[in-house]
Design a protein around this nucleic acid. Structure first.
Length: 544
RNA sequence: GCGCCCGUAGCUCAAUUGGAUAGAGCAACUGCCUUCUAAGCAGUAGGUUACAGGUUCGAGUCCUGUCGGGCGUACCA
C-alpha cells in the first residue's frame, strides 16, 4: 500500500513545475493518531521550500491533481500544517485480510534480504563456566536477530567464537585439579583467583569416578583443563538448546594461529606501517585512527592480546564471503571494536560488512535488591536455574522486551511470577483464547468456503485488520535496526486490540454469516500472533 | 581527565528513525464475571521528556554546554 501511495504521489509530482533533482524523498507513514487516517505524507511540507509556497496550498494542489483508485483509498484530506491523510477503503482491507490467511505461517516474510548471506556471531563465552543470566541477553538477542533476518529472506548462520587457551583457561584447569586432589583427600592448594563454583567440584568428582586416583601425579593442569572444557561446553550447548538456540558452528580462536592468519595480520600491518615494535611488544598505531594511545597487539611475553585474533577472526569471516557479519557485544566491548574495524580496513576488507550490536548490561534484581555477578566468584544465577524456575518462554521474553540500548533490569521475582504480572502470558493468552473459540466454532457449525468479510463493520474489527497489516513492515524495521523489542511492542498492541474486539464483538451465538467472518478474523489474528511469537522463539499455546 | 551509552509518569520501559494532543505495564483509585478463558475489560489519577541554549514549518528524537548514572579508558578477556 505504501508503495502504491508513493507511486501516485510521484505521478502527481511530475505535473508540478519542479526539476526532478530537487524532489524530496517521498515519505508515507502511519499517523500516531488513528483519527488522522491510515496513512499520511508530509510531502507538501517538504515542497514548501523549493516551491516557495505555503504547505497547505501545495497540499491542496497535490490532492486536487492526485489520481487514486477508490477501491484502495476511500478518502484523502488535508490536516494540520499540511499533512495529506489517506483513508483505506474497506474493500482493500478485506482483500488484505484474506491475503493474510492465504499466506498463513509465511505472512510477514519478505525478500528484502533475499540472496544475502549473513553471519551472526553471539554468545562467544569462553568455556570457563555455565552460562549465566548475564550471557542470556547476548544469546537471546543474537538468536532473535538471526531469526528476524531469516524472515527478511536472508540465509543466516549462527556462530560461537571461543578461546580455549590462555590464562583464564589455565586457572580453570588448576581449579579442577585442586578440587580433584581434595576429593581424593589430599592436600591441595586452591589457586589464587581460582574458580570457586560448585560446578568445578562436579567436574572433579566425575574425574574421580572415571579415573580414580590415577591422575593424582599429573604434573600440570592440562588433563583437567580439557575435561573442564568438554564438560562445560556440553552444558553450554544444552542450555542454548533449551532456549531454542542452535549454533551452526563453533569457531576456535586456535585455528587462526594454525592457519597463519595471525601472522598475516601482523605482517600486513607492519607493511603498512601500522604496527611497530616497542618495549618488546608489538603495537598497533591506533592513534592514526583518532585514539589517545596506541594499542598492544602482542605482549612482550609473546602472547597476543585478544585484539589481534579478533582482527584475524573478522578477516576470516569476510573471507568466507558473507554479505554481512553481525557481532553481538556487551557494552564492555564498546571501545574495542573500532580497533577491529580499523584493523580489517587496513587489511583491505570492506569494514561496512561488519555490523556491531552493542547492548547495555543486565542488572539483576534478586529479593528486591541489586545482585552483583561474577563467574569466578560463583555469585551468579545460571540460565539453567532461571529456566528451571520460569521456563524458556519467559526467559526469552524478558531478555527481548527492552531496547538493546538501555539497561535491562531483570527482576527474578517478577519473572517467576507466573500470573498477571508477567507480560509474556498476555500474548500467549490471547492466542490460546482464540484457539479455544475456534474449537467451539467448529463444534457448533460447519463453516465452508470463504467468509463474507463485508460483515466486518465494527470499529474494533477494522482496527484489528489494520494492525495486522503492519506486521511485515514492522519485521523489516526490527531486523534492520536490530531491535527485537519492536516485535514485542507490536504483539502487545495486537493482543490488546484483539481483547478489545473480544469484549466488543461475540463470535459464538451470532448468525452464521457474521460468525464465519469473525472467526476468520480471529483466525488471522492467531496466525499473526503465532508468527510473531515464532520470531521471538516463544511458543504460542493452544490452551492455557 | 578523555571516549561511548543513557536520563521520559511513583517504579520498569515505549514512542513508526525529525511529525500532528508523549503512550503501555506494574503500583493507587472506581466500576465490570448468569453469554466464546476475569491470566481479562472500561475508566480516574499521575509529565516543564534532567537543566539551559541552538538548528526549522515542526525536537523526547539532531547540535552545543551543564548536572546526574552506567561502561570503558591494561603488555586482562
Amino acid at each position: 500500500m505504501n508503495d502504491y501511495l508513493k507511486q501516485i504521489l510521484t505521478d502527481t509530482l511530475k505535473t508540478f513545475d519542479l526539476d526532478e533533482s530537487v524532489w524530496p524523498e517521498i515519505q508515507v507513514e502511519k499517523p500516531r493518531d488513528p483519527s488522522h487516517g491510515d496513512a499520511a505524507t508530509n510531502l507538501a511540507m517538504m515542497l514548501a521550500k523549493p516551491l516557495r509556497n505555503n504547505p497547505r496550498k501545495i497540499a491542496e494542489e497535490l490532492v486536487d491533481k492526485l489520481n487514486y483508485d477508490p477501491r484502495k483509498i476511500s478518502a484523502v484530506d488535508i490536516a494540520g500544517p499540511g499533512f495529506i491523510n489517506f483513508r483505506f477503503s474497506e474493500n482493500y482491507l478485506f482483500d488484505a485480510l484474506s491475503d493474510i490467511l492465504k499466506e498463513g505461517e509465511n505472512f510477514g516474510r519478505s525478500d528484502e534480504d533475499a540472496g544475502k548471506r549473513i553471519l551472526v556471531e553471539f554468545v562467544s563465552a569462553n568455556p570457563t563456566g555455565p552460562l549465566t543470566v548475564g550471557h542470556g541477553r547476548n544469546a537471546v538477542l543474537g538468536d532473535t536477530i538471526a531469526r528476524l533476518f531469516e524472515w527478511t529472506g536472508a540465509s543466516v548462520e549462527r556462530e560461537y567464537y571461543f578461546n580455549n587457551a590462555g590464562r583464564q583457561m589455565r586457572v580453570l584447569g588448576q581449579s579442577v585439579q585442586a578440587r580433584y586432589l581434595q576429593e581424593l583427600g589430599r592436600d591441595a592448594e586452591f589457586p589464587e583467583g581460582g574458580y570457586e563454583g560448585e560446578y568445578i567440584r562436579d567436574i572433579a568428582h566425575k574425574l574421580v569416578e572415571e579415573h580414580g586416583d590415577s591422575l593424582a601425579e599429573e604434573a600440570d593442569e592440562s588433563v583437567f583443563k580439557e575435561k573442564a572444557e568438554s564438560e562445560i561446553f556440553r552444558d553450554i550447548r544444552q542450555t542454548l538448546e533449551r532456549m531454542g538456540i542452535k549454533m551452526d558452528s563453533f569457531f576456535n580462536e586456535h585455528e587462526l594461529y594454525e592457519n597463519g592468519a595471525i601472522d598475516d595480520v601482523i605482517r600486513t600491518l607492519r607493511d603498512k606501517e601500522l604496527a611497530y615494535d616497542h618495549d618488546g611488544a608489538i603495537w598497533f598505531k591506533t592513534t592514526q585512527f583518532g585514539k589517545d594511545k596506541d594499542t598492544v597487539l602482542v605482549k612482550s611475553t609473546g602472547e597476543p592480546t585478544y585484539r589481534l585474533p579478533d582482527i584475524a577472526y573478522h578477516g576470516n569471516k569476510l573471507d568466507r564471503n558473507y554479505d554481512l557479519c553481525i557481532d553481538v557485544f556487551g557494552a564492555d566491548h564498546i571501545d574495542t571494536y573500532p580497533d577491529v574495524l580499523n584493523g580489517i580496513k587496513a587489511l583491505g576488507y570492506d569494514e561496512s560488512k561488519v555490523d556491531v550490536l552493542v547492548y547495555q548490561f543486565v542488572s539483576i534484581v534478586k529479593d528486591g535488591k541489586p545482585y552483583k555477578m561474577s563467574t569466578r566468584k560463583a555469585n551468579f544465577v545460571t540460565l539453567d536455574e532461571l529456566m528451571d524456575e520460569v521456563g524458556s518462554d519467559v526467559t526469552r521474553f524478558f531478555f527481548l522486551m527492552r531496547s538493546p540500548s538501555t539497561h535491562l533490569e531483570f527482576d527474578i521475582a517478577q519473572a517467576k511470577e507466573a500470573g498477571e504480572k508477567n507480560p509474556v502470558f498476555y500474548l500467549q493468552y490471547a492466542h490460546a483464547r482464540i484457539q479455544s473459540i475456534l474449537r467451539k466454532v467448529d463444534e457448533v457449525a460447519e463453516l465452508t468456503g470463504s467468509a463474507d468479510l463485508t460483515q466486518l463493520t465494527h470499529e474494533s474489527e477494522i482496527r484489528l485488520i489494520k494492525a495486522m497489516l503492519e506486521f511485515p513492515d514492522m519485521i523489516q524495521s526490527a531486523a534492520q535496526s536490530k531491535e527485537p523489542h519492536r516485535v514485542i511492542n507490536f504483539l502487545n498492541s495486537l493482543a490488546s486490540d484483539f481483547t478489545t474486539f473480544y469484549h466488543d464483538c461475540r463470535i459464538l451465538g451470532e448468525d452464521e454469516k457474521l460468525m464465519h467472518a469473525r472467526a476468520t478474523l480471529a483466525n488471522a489474528v492467531a496466525q499473526v500472533l503465532a508468527n510473531g511469537l515464532g520470531i521471538l522463539g516463544i511458543s504460542a499455546p493452544d490452551r492455557m
